[in-house]
């Protein structure tokens, strides 16, 4: 479903991605973790072409991300959820969800709204359809953002630290929605520090450090017997508290 082959990227003299390769099969859930500045977010943004890359190749569902024409089509099939939600503050929750289907897929308003209401119900926010993002809590906003991404009927969902900007009591409601999605067979790449989620839901853990993919293995092995010292150090820091 997703093939990342030898992707490298530099900002000036700083190399943020060093020949990264990952393959994700249909229905797989991959959690990407690692210290801050390790290139996790950059890598996930390369997958839908929001970040251009210097070398390598990324193919999603048979389409090449590097191809400017194909990436446009590709993005309609890749849902993305951002750390800061990035809901459109001038639109209600309902209109946030309807916008892309209407603008990009040229759906009629009635059709887009019907689907949007169904999606809001699915993330347990049916009664908040008319509210604006600022009237919603962080957890609610992120759930609207997930519904917005699902409105394009994506075949892949990317999550870029979806719970990092949330207060602790709201993290669970967002992770629950993501867990449901995974259970339904959605192909997902999730950049997160939520190791409990990673352990329960992920099929594989990709551990990154300094722009490199250091480990790529199943959660059980990764958490109990990590191969690299870097992963051991990272886990001791993140699980030690």
């Amino acid at each position: 479903m997703i093939e990342v082959r030898g992707v490298s990227k530099s900002y000036g003299p700083v190399q943020v991605l060093k020949s990264c390769s990952v393959a994700v099969a249909r229905g797989e859930v991959i959690v990407v973790c690692g210290p801050s500045g390790s290139g996790k977010s950059t890598l996930i943004k390369c997958v839908n072409g929001l970040e251009p890359f210097d070398a390598g190749e990324i193919v999603v569902d048979g389409l090449s991300v590097a191809d400017r024409k194909q990436v446009q089509t590709l993005r309609t099939r890749i849902g993305m959820v951002f750390q800061n939600f990035e809901l459109y503050p001038h639109l209600s929750a309902l209109d946030n969800i309807c916008l892309a289907p209407m603008v990009v897929l040229k759906k009629k308003r009635a059709e887009a709204e019907e689907r949007a209401r169904a999606l809001l119900a699915r993330v347990d926010l049916a009664e908040h359809a008319g509210k604006y993002p600022l009237q919603l809590s962080g957890g609610q906003q992120q759930r609207v953002a997930i519904a917005r991404a699902l409105a394009m009927d994506p075949v892949v969902m990317l999550f870029d630290e979806p719970t990092s900007a949330l207060d602790p009591e709201m993290i669970k409601e967002v992770l629950d929605v993501m867990t449901d999605l995974a259970a339904e067979g959605m192909t997902m790449i999730v950049v997160t520090h939520e190791m409990g989620f990673a352990r329960r839901v992920a099929d594989r853990i990709v551990f990154m450090d300094a722009g490199e993919i250091v480990e790529d293995r199943d959660p059980e092995t990764f958490f109990t017997t990590p191969a690299s010292d870097r992963a051991k150090l990272f886990l001791s820091k993140i699980l030690g508290h």
Partner: peptide, 13 residues
């Protein structure tokens, strides 16, 4: 914020 354009681009706009 640039993230707003990115959200639009990410949805295929």
């Amino acid at each position: 914020p640039k993230g707003q354009i990115n959200a639009g681009l990410a949805s295929g706009m």
